[in-house]
Amino acid sequence: MPVSFTLNGKPTSLDVDPEMPLLWALRENTGLTGTKFGCGAGLCGACTVHVDGEPTRACITPVGTIDGQQVTTIEGVDGPAAAAVRTAWRQLDVVQCGYCQSGQIMAATALLRQVPRPDDAGIDAAMSGNICRCATYVRIRAAIHRAARILEG
């Protein structure tokens, strides 16, 4: 029984083991490789996608559970918050190795959609599930503040 959901705005149907984590279904069955594997246990946030707008750990989400839902990945995330986050990330050159940054951007975009002007504590709370081993955290904080200002116009 295929799993049907909306992926980056397009109807998608996958005939895979419903227990397969969404992460691997995205990467290996749809070819969207921007979502990364970091821990496989929901501990690092590298696999963060949006499911019905909520930041979700794709590595521990069985693909069968997202039937009928809206899935957005780094390749498809758009709108004012996502654009502001990307702009700020580039202006401040946040990235180093870049491997965790899809997840960071997905988490930051979700944060700004809910809290347009987060303070440092709010950023820490929303982003502490996303590990960056390059420790780009100083710039992630700064970039979220900058994205908030961009959104204010």
């Binding site: 979502t35 990330w89 580039r90 946040v94 870049g98």
Partner: peptide
């Protein structure tokens, strides 16, 4: 590498 590492 900033652009490619922020759009997947």
């Amino acid at each position: 590498d900033s652009a490619a590492k922020t759009d997947g």
